[in-house]
Design a protein around this nucleic acid. Structure first.
Lengths: 186, 186
DNA sequence: GTCTATAGATAGATAGAC
DNA sequence: GTCTATCTATCTATAGAC
């Protein structure tokens, strides 16, 4: 049944979101699906097979999230708010980190990660245009790296004011981007 | 012998740098030290004990690296170069990622990570001053997050031009920081 | 105090039953 | 095609030898 595969992938996604790549084991994913580990290997013979399949689903979700975020932004004031909110989604950050680690070991996952990164940067370029800012590639790279860096820092430090600090940093960046076009005094 | 402990910690650091937290197991660290796993547990009874000890050493090294980087930067032109070079040190990035993951699970590691982050941001504030830029906290946060984001992206994507892209992004940021003070037309 | 043998738990993969 | 019993490898922890 094709439905089984979806159940397994969903369980794998949940594990990544809750525990990261550390918790990504066949027994745990099988248990969450209500299957035996030896049954799981029928659908995905090796751990790598399963990991690549889950990574594919994960990158699709991450791309959809990025798209949704971009659509929620309409003004320059929105931007920092919406993106800072994104950096506070720890489940999302754990998946992102898991993808990074897996990308280093699995070429297939690396390819998926690259596609995701390129797509995200493309979205950011479009966003800069939408906000009336020059769509400079380096600026899109800045926003992309900033999103990852702020998300990871927030997750690792466990700061209670993590989102506020993310927002302050993003606000400062968008202010700088805007100043370049229209340098009005203070 | 106190020397044994140092050997063990060094082996743990090497594992983190080469394989990340995934490879951080007692048998592998013991093998690298030339010890038996059951002997390793004499010095560090549990895996967590060992992890915290290695994390402590790792954060000290990361802090020293940051300090060394800051000292190498004297002009605004140096900054992007030196920092971009730092983002290309994958062994360093793997340790950083391992610390992030461990920080979420171990409160002691989280405390170490926070100290490291605060110290790094302090160094960045001093750097901004040194370069004749206003030392704004949000700007230091931007550089900190950017370093992490660019490092991780470079590691995960495996881009051949990763360092160049890091440099381009950092150059753009420092240009923006400088423009704020002295907005000269193009 | 230093080190080892061994046990207990968990992960991954395979052959084969239905 | 669907599912399970089982084997091997690996990891962590403990009791105890020297």
């Amino acid at each position: 049944m094709e439905d089984r595969r979806k159940q397994i992938i969903d369980a794998g996604l949940a594990i990544l979101a809750e525990e990261g790549l550390q918790g990504f084991t066949q027994p745990r994913i099988a248990a969450r699906t209500g299957l035996r580990q030896s049954h799981l290997t029928y659908y995905y013979p090796t751990r790598t097979d399963l990991l690549v399949a889950v990574a594919r689903a994960a990158t699709e979700i991450q791309a959809a999230n990025a798209q949704a975020m971009a659509q929620r932004i309409v003004t320059r004031e929105d931007a920092a708010d919406v993106i800072a909110c994104g950096t506070a989604r720890h489940e999302n950050t754990r998946v992102l980190l898991a993808l990074c680690e897996a990308a280093e070991q699995e070429p297939d996952v690396r390819a998926l990660f690259n596609t995701l990164a390129d797509g995200s940067i493309g979205l950011l370029m479009a966003l800069l245009s939408k906000l009336g800012l020059k769509p400079i590639p380096a600026h899109a790279d800045i926003l992309h790296a900033l999103f990852i860096g702020l998300s990871v820092t927030h997750l690792a430090t466990g700061r209670t004011n993590g989102e506020a600090r993310s927002k302050a940093a993003l606000d400062a960046v968008f202010t700088l981007f805007a100043q370049k076009r229209a340098p009005r005094g203070k």
